[in-house]
Design a protein around this nucleic acid. Sequence first.
DNA 1: TTAAAAAATTTAACACTGTTAAGTAAATGA
DNA 2: TCATTTACTTAACAGTGTTAAATTTTTTAA
Lengths: 199, 199
Amino acid sequence: MASKDRILRLKEETRCNILDASLKIVKEGGWDALSMRKIADEIEYTAPIIYEYYSNKGAILLELTRKGFLLLAKQLEEAKAKHRLPAKQLEAMWLAYWDFAFAERELYQVMYGVETSCCEMAKKMPESELPTDLIWDVIVELMLPHVATEDEVCIKYYTFWSVIHGLISINMVNRGNSDETNQEILKLAISGIIKSITG
Amino acid sequence: MASKDRILRLKEETRCNILDASLKIVKEGGWDALSMRKIADEIEYTAPIIYEYYSNKGAILLELTRKGFLLLAKQLEEAKAKHRLPAKQLEAMWLAYWDFAFAERELYQVMYGVETSCCEMAKKMPESELPTDLIWDVIVELMLPHVATEDEVCIKYYTFWSVIHGLISINMVNRGNSDETNQEILKLAISGIIKSITG
DNA sequence: TTAAAAAATTTAACACTGTTAAGTAAATGA
DNA sequence: TCATTTACTTAACAGTGTTAAATTTTTTAA
């Protein structure tokens, strides 16, 4: 029965269409815009049909997450293949990682739990700059007697902030390391940047 | 009319109770568990009453966010006050930042857009370790001829990952820096860590 | 004290969400 | 052609944020 095969192929296609439709909706309106009924609209079915292909909404997110990791891995391999020296490879891979995050912004968000909605919220809130200012001032003082430009301090500040916020995020989203490991990474990173300032 | 004052005081108290109730619910069941009706239950009113105090749910989140920034700033100041040398102050402040993130996990999440729901999702997905493994291998190779232990590579890997994921998150949630600044931070951080490996 | 006005609070409703069960239409097999 | 399976839709439930109307309570004025 070749018709069985045809039907199986159609089913696989619909499974794929659901993922494509989901990603399309998310790219147009963000993760909040994604709903089962909108997906159904997009693939020209009604909502309950989707449950024939994915057990629930979470399973769709999970599948998109998986696709994201595979795509990222592929791009890391390509970046690596362009160089011979490990140092160059490593640099190229992290730059590829960076590019992936913004080229596939929505995938990166679901892969690593980067919130999307609170974007415009934290802005326009003066209190949000309080912690920044406090640390900023100490960095300026640490660089004395050299009078640092805005850009110089900015780079130092964001390097500090990135490594610490990154480590926090990673640990919060998929609690990764042991406490000792975290503390070691933290202290090494902090003292490293401080040394790069004091020379 | 002193009764006016009393009423105003009661109103202010209810405003505060709403925030307290919200945070309690979130601490018990995560951000997904927070709903207007549950808040109303907690303060022993019905849902529409809340709109007399906050224009919508977002305004409540915003107020909690503000409280978070104020509390963080306070703790940073306290950390700073414990030291004289700017280098020691800076270290203490970042460690205080770290402590705040986990002591006030829910506040940190809403302040900086750290997703909460996808926690158990990315786990148990083998593909999620693909990018990690790829980069891990190159780090091992870069450290040759020294044969690195698991822990040594782990620290290097997470330092890389933290600074880059952190910078990505910061830019995604409240798009901060210019492209040039980001690239500069990125390249400096990457080459810095690579140098710390190759010596 | 009582009637009227104002404030406080609740009930009901709307449009949406994910999800399930029941019903209907279409395709398939004998 | 008839029966059975498959495909699909409609209807419903419990939940969400939010608004308007109805109701109760409190305050004010006569």
